[in-house]
Amino acid sequence: MARWGMVIDLDRCTACQACVVACQVENNVAPPSAEQATRGRAISWLRLVPFKESEHGTRPGLRLVPLPCMQCDRPPCTKVCPVQATQIDKEGLVAQVYPRCIGCRYCTTACPYTVRHFNWERPEWPEPMAEGLNPDVSVRPRGVVEKCTFCHHRLQRAKDKAAAESRPLREGDYVPACVETCPAGAMVFGDLDDPRSAVVRLSESPRAFRLLEELGTRPKVIYLSKGEWGGTV
């Protein structure tokens, strides 16, 4: 069974935010109203978070880091959910079942990466955008928590197609929207349990590191970076 993971090469990333836009469109994430945004209630499954680089580094200044859900192997969010609305499945995807969510927001608090978002309002799209929603992704109602799913609806489609052609799932059959979009080729997606996959090869690079590794969450999003952040400190 696969264990899906993502590698993000920060040395290749140009911070163009194409992944952010692709994610919003793919997953029917509504643009926030000005009021919602000022209250810090804007929903974004994938954000570019500014981190200050060390002043002693070779490239001082800000670095923008794409931050999707880390899809932890030991997710703190699933442990606190009182209704099992969020669970980690056998392929390592941390899923959210919206109709089961009671909106208690324990999970948003438990997540150290702050990638879980609560729907404070009913989502609303400007007129032409409302016509273009992705039918493969359900629109979340008010009062539930949502987050990056690694576009698992694409896995459902890919599995369906593979089963119809009676063949196993191949590498590249299932790729999230952000990875597919990245023009710099900074994002790679695949099976972390398959020794031949590109993600495994990259994750063994000396540049590889994970965010807040010391918490023991075992994230399946692996970053690559030279210098003080990377593995070559």
Binding site: D89, K90, E91, A95, V97, S138, T149, H152, H153, Q156
Partner: peptide
């Protein structure tokens, strides 16, 4: 067959 949430829910 798998009864994982992600198999059917989206």
């Amino acid at each position: 067959v798998s009864t994982d949430c992600t198999v059917c829910h989206r």
